[in-house]
């Protein structure tokens, strides 16, 4: 399950762009590898973040992993509804399980991300 209209970061975050706003979440591959997600630590609205920065944490029953931002900019919004019901990320990683939105300062960074086909090849290698 790798939507065609998204871009993907090597740490398994996805990006959906609308003008200069990037919506970010984790891929189906990532949620599946983590298993039951029980806690999410999100960045704060207004945080200035740079591509690749650790901006939060995702904890599943078995492990903890860092949440990285695939683009640079200012955090516009975070998905508060997943804080209390993080299992939504497992159920709908590309939809209601989105994590945060960034006002991008450098949209050329998007060129460094993978498209669906490249990401599919990338996870096959892992």
């Amino acid at each position: 399950m790798i939507p065609e209209d998204l871009l993907y970061f090597e740490e398994h975050e996805w990006v959906r762009t609308e003008n200069t706003t990037a919506t970010i979440g984790i891929s189906d591959y990532a949620q599946n590898a983590l298993g039951d997600i029980v806690y999410v630590d999100l960045p704060k609205v207004g945080d200035e973040v740079s591509m690749g920065d650790t901006v939060g944490e995702i904890e599943s029953v078995k492990s903890t992993s860092e949440l990285r931002t695939p683009v640079s900019g200012k955090v516009l919004e975070v998905n508060e509804s997943i804080v209390d019901t993080p299992e939504i990320i497992n159920e709908d990683p590309y939809g209601s399980g989105w994590l945060f939105k960034v006002e991008m300062t450098d949209p050329t960074e998007l060129d460094e991300l993978m498209n669906a086909e490249e990401y599919e090849a990338y996870i096959k290698e892992l």
């Binding site: 298993g35 039951d36 029980v38 029953v61 078995k62 497992n90």
Partner: peptide, 9 residues
């Protein structure tokens, strides 16, 4: 087997 569907389920 670590899990089948989900540990919490």
């Amino acid at each position: 087997p670590l899990y089948y569907s989900s540990i919490t389920e």
